[in-house]
């Protein structure tokens, strides 16, 4: 299924998928931090690859990202993405470090673990909701330019399209983004042939065609 053929109804269904997955991830982070974390917005937007990079703050923006490949009933990539100031705020909240020393190994492993927990709970919720067995890869952390991280994550989708449907959950802590910078994101990037399977699993495959 090409992103251009999705109806508004189907985009709404995907938004619900994001609400459930990212909502569950926010709950996990909440219990980890002992503070309110919620989903600020769920967005489902078909975007050209270069637009996705801009959406994440531009190709050269430094981000921290935890990446997981999903296989099983549906396949795709998941990314937990934080800006550097968000990440430092989170590390300082969890370890008491001042953040003045930048990213230590300990700090990076905190982000790695947070990303792991968030993506894991997203996938669990997704798997329950859709009734699919989903197998995640070992989560991996990178701190680098957003363009480099995102283009890699889009390479499978690139086989059939120059556009991806970004299923994005923006997270906020205590009603605010973790810092002044743009809030953190949890992206689901399903492979193109997975959309049909999601709609079939939810019994809405025939609805809302254009």
């Amino acid at each position: 299924m090409d992103s251009g053929t999705l109806s508004d109804f189907h985009l709404d269904v995907l938004k619900e998928v994001s609400n459930i997955g990212a909502g569950n991830a926010a709950t996990s982070l909440s219990s980890l931090l002992g503070r309110a974390v919620d989903m600020r917005v769920s967005r489902v937007v078909p975007m050209p690859f270069n637009g996705i990079v801009d959406y994440a703050g531009g190709a050269e923006r430094m981000i921290l990202s935890v990446f997981v490949r999903i296989e099983g009933g549906i396949s795709g990539n998941m990314l937990f993405v934080m800006g550097t100031s968000d990440a430092l705020a989170l590390i300082s909240h969890m370890t008491g470090a001042s953040g003045g020393e930048g990213f230590t190994d300990m700090g990076l492993s905190v982000i790695h673990e947070v990303g792991n927990i968030m993506i894991g709970s997203y996938i669990t919720a997704l798997s329950d909701f859709l009734g699919f067995e989903l197998t995640p890869s070992v989560p991996s952390l990178a701190m680098d330019m957003a363009g480099a991280i995102l283009a890699f994550s889009l390479s499978e989708i690139g086989r059939s399209s120059d556009t991806a449907i970004v299923i994005d959950g923006c997270l906020s802590l205590d009603g605010n983004p973790l810092s002044e910078e743009e809030s953190s994101h949890i992206f689901l990037l399903p492979d193109p042939d997975s959309f049909g399977r999601i709609f079939q699993a939810l019994g809405v495959a025939g609805h809302g065609g254009r």
């Binding site: 990446f67 490949r69 070992v138 991280i149 890699f152």
Partner: peptide, 13 residues
């Protein structure tokens, strides 16, 4: 570059 290091079945990716 190889941006991430994962184990097992994600190799070709």
């Amino acid at each position: 570059a190889q941006m991430f290091s994962l184990g097992g079945n994600a190799d070709s990716l």
